Amino acid sequence: MTSIHSIPPELIDLIIDHAHADRSLLAACSLVCKAWFPAARHHLFSNAKLNAENASSFVNLINSASSTINPFVRHIDAKDNCESGRWVEDWFAKLTSLPFVTSICFTSSCDTVLSQTTLRALRSFDRLVDLRLVGCQFADFIEVQELICSFPVLQSIYLEADWPEPFAITPTETSPSPHLRELYLRCEMSHILDWFLMQPHVAPVSKVTLHGLDAVELPVVGRYLQALGPVLTHLTIFPSGSVYNSLSDHVNLSLNACLQYLKLVIDCDSPDLTMARTFLSQVDSPLFDEVELSFYSVRQGPRLAREWTDLDKLLATPKFSSMTRTTISAMSAAGLAKETLPLCHQRGVLQVQRHYTISCSANSTLSCLS
Score class of each variant (00 low, 15 high):
260 Q>L: 06
247 L>D: 06
235 L>A: 00
222 G>P: 10
231 V>A: 15
111 D>C: 06
282 Q>C: 12
218 L>G: 03
23 R>W: 07
196 F>Q: 11
48 A>G: 11
121 A>N: 08
368 C>G: 07
98 L>Q: 04
352 V>L: 00
26 L>E: 14
236 T>L: 05
272 D>Y: 04
274 T>M: 01
205 V>K: 00
205 V>N: 01
80 D>S: 03
101 V>Y: 01
262 L>C: 02
142 I>S: 10
157 I>M: 14
124 S>M: 04
47 N>G: 10
16 I>C: 07
266 I>N: 03
153 V>N: 13
262 L>A: 02
216 V>R: 11
86 R>P: 10
263 K>C: 09
186 R>D: 10
165 E>M: 14
139 A>D: 14
256 N>S: 15
155 Q>V: 04
306 R>V: 11
310 D>G: 07
106 F>E: 01
50 L>N: 06
284 D>I: 14
143 E>M: 10
332 S>M: 11
257 A>S: 13
149 C>S: 12
286 P>M: 10
329 S>D: 05
347 R>A: 11
249 D>E: 14
70 N>E: 06
48 A>I: 03
4 I>R: 06
19 A>I: 12
215 A>P: 04
258 C>E: 15
118 T>C: 05
136 C>Y: 05
27 A>F: 13
338 K>Y: 03
308 W>C: 09
219 P>C: 07
274 T>S: 05
23 R>A: 14
218 L>Q: 03
115 S>Y: 00
254 S>E: 08
341 L>K: 05
340 T>H: 11
35 A>E: 07
31 L>S: 14
74 R>V: 14
76 I>S: 07
172 T>S: 13
208 V>K: 00
358 I>C: 10
196 F>P: 05
325 R>A: 13
350 L>F: 01
23 R>F: 12
210 L>Y: 02
138 F>G: 11
88 V>K: 05
115 S>E: 02
190 S>A: 11
172 T>N: 10
64 S>N: 14
105 C>N: 06
360 C>E: 11
220 V>A: 06
35 A>Q: 12
355 H>P: 01
10 E>H: 12
227 A>N: 08
213 L>S: 02
186 R>Q: 14
52 A>P: 04
40 A>V: 05
167 F>D: 15
252 N>Q: 15
264 L>E: 00
247 L>I: 10
293 L>W: 00
54 N>Q: 02
259 L>N: 01
203 A>Q: 03
312 D>I: 10
203 A>L: 03
326 T>V: 12
226 Q>W: 04
203 A>H: 04
307 E>I: 12
201 H>F: 08
285 S>Y: 00
260 Q>R: 08
